[in-house]
């Protein structure tokens, strides 16, 4: 029990994918007009990250490792995540036209997002047991969604505040992302 809990904390905060491991940073900067749009995008990214990582890890542990086909893992990971993204996009267009109109580009870009691939790679080489790996990927996906939300709130305040013209927009985003990632280093040693 305690292990599960600390695994989730470790994955979500201490080893946060976007801000500490610097994987999938591009999603942080994806355009969002308002905070509520980012909430949707964060949910969607969780829906891509968690299932894709789970399937990747399962296939890796149950098929590739027993058969000794580990050199194929990159090919497998990319195709699985692309498949899941395509499936999600398809369902979005069918069921939620507004959501699709808002986020379809960001969702499709997630198909080869380094957050998915990197998470799968890191976990496939780690020495912990398969259930712990799955729990870790749940925590990592949740942590990624949280960092998206935090950064969107930050960006909204930056956009609305009066800032020097030279720094307005992307420069300030990059600087604040750097400071945010430094701040998250403060969680080191929490678990």
């Amino acid at each position: 029990m305690a292990t599960l809990f600390s695994t989730i904390i470790a994955a979500a905060l201490v080893n946060n994918l976007a801000l500490v491991q610097l994987l999938g940073v591009s999603t942080l900067f994806s355009f969002s007009r308002q905070f509520s749009a980012t909430v949707e995008l964060a949910l969607l990214s969780f829906l891509v990250l968690f299932p894709a990582a789970c399937i990747n890890l399962l296939l890796h542990a149950l098929i590739l490792q027993p058969l000794g086909l580990e050199f194929l893992q990159l090919f497998l990971f990319v195709s699985v995540s692309a498949g899941i993204t395509a499936l999600l996009g398809q369902q979005l267009v069918k069921l939620f036209p507004l959501l699709a109109r808002r986020h379809i580009r960001a969702v499709l870009l997630m198909c080869s997002n380094s957050a998915v691939i990197g998470l799968s790679f890191l976990q496939s080489t780690s020495l912990s047991s398969l259930p712990i790996k799955l729990v870790y990927s749940f925590g990592a996906a949740a942590g990624f969604a949280i960092s998206l939300l935090v950064f969107a709130a930050l960006r909204q305040r930056i956009d609305q505040g009066s800032s020097p013209a030279a720094l307005r927009g992307v420069p300030l985003y990059l600087i604040s992302a750097g400071i945010a990632s430094m701040a998250l280093l403060g969680f080191a040693g929490l678990v």
Binding site: Q34, Q160, G161
Partner: peptide, 10 residues
């Protein structure tokens, strides 16, 4: 801030 940016929704 939101009035200056004309974000009436906010």
């Amino acid at each position: 801030a939101s009035i200056r940016n004309e974000e009436w929704q906010d």
